Amino acid sequence: MKALDTLDTSGGAAAPAPVLYVRAAVPGDAELLARWRREAAAWVARRHGNAQWSGPDRPERRLALIRRGATVMALLEPDGPAVATCTVWPRGSRRRWTDEERGVPARYLRKSAVDRAHAGRGIGRLLHEWAGHRAASAGALVLRLDARSDNPGLHGYYLDCGWRHVRTVPGMASGALFETPALLRPGLPVRELGEIRLPD
């Protein structure tokens, strides 16, 4: 599962982004993340005729990322249910990013998803801004991601959110590369719950 923020697009007028509460994911969140992945695959297939996220699931990888502290959950209330997630990783794939690019201090956004019931509220965008803030706090200059190469709707979403298309790696399913500046955003309406120690 790559970036699922196509889930946060509805085509209608966007409501003001809410305040988000972010906590570290725990192993008990794994089944919810698997369900969001299945729902995302079904939605993208219906809406765009695209096979994104329909490949084999890797639950062991999901749990490993949770245990490393890389995955977070976003809530609309401090004690409420999770409505979104993302994973922030400190290293980029050698198959996608050049040695020169990987020499730039960066963080890599992965496995981003918004619950379909909360799509269109700006949650995905706000969570990405939080990830960029945390990346900048750790000394990164850019936040990067790779998206499925054959999903132009998702590419358009990232461009609309201010990401820059770097290039598309030929022959790679998730080879559309994007980046955006990692910026400190002290006024961002995101509150962290407990300690969130993203991997260095």
Rank of each mutant, 00 (worst) to 15 (best):
L141D: 14
G175H: 11
A15E: 08
L177F: 06
W163P: 05
R62F: 02
L32C: 02
A138T: 01
T180Y: 09
L76Y: 05
K2W: 14
Y157I: 12
R121F: 04
R144M: 09
R185E: 15
N151F: 10
E39W: 06
A30W: 06
V72G: 08
D200R: 13
A40H: 07
D5V: 07
A74F: 02
A14D: 00
P170A: 11
T168N: 05
D150V: 07
W89E: 13
A45R: 15
V22C: 03
V88Q: 00
D160W: 07
H133N: 13
T168I: 07
E101W: 04
A30F: 07
A40W: 01
G153I: 00
V169E: 15
C161L: 14
L145T: 11
E179H: 06
P56A: 15
H133T: 08
V169D: 09
L183N: 07
R107N: 03
C86T: 03
R148V: 11
T87Y: 03
A140G: 01
G80K: 03
A119I: 11
R67M: 03
L188N: 14
E101K: 04
A84S: 13
A140H: 06
R191L: 13
S149F: 03
A74K: 00
G194V: 12
R191Q: 13
G124F: 00
A34I: 03
L188C: 12
V190N: 06
V190L: 11
N50V: 02
G187S: 15
A136F: 07
Q52E: 14
R38V: 10
V88M: 14
P90Q: 07
D115P: 00
V44D: 05
C86R: 05
A17C: 04
R191N: 12
P170N: 08
M1F: 12
I196K: 10
S174Q: 15
L20C: 04
P170S: 13
K2S: 14
R23Q: 09
V142H: 10
L154I: 04
P81L: 05
L198T: 09
R94T: 15
P199T: 12
L33N: 03
L127E: 01
Y157W: 15
W163G: 07
R197K: 12
G103K: 12
D8N: 05
A34N: 08
P16L: 09
H48V: 02
P199I: 10
W36H: 03
G103C: 04
L7S: 13
W97H: 02
A173L: 14
R125P: 00
H155A: 04
A140M: 10
G69I: 01
I66H: 08
D57Y: 06
R91Y: 11
M172R: 14
A173R: 15
T168C: 02
A136I: 02
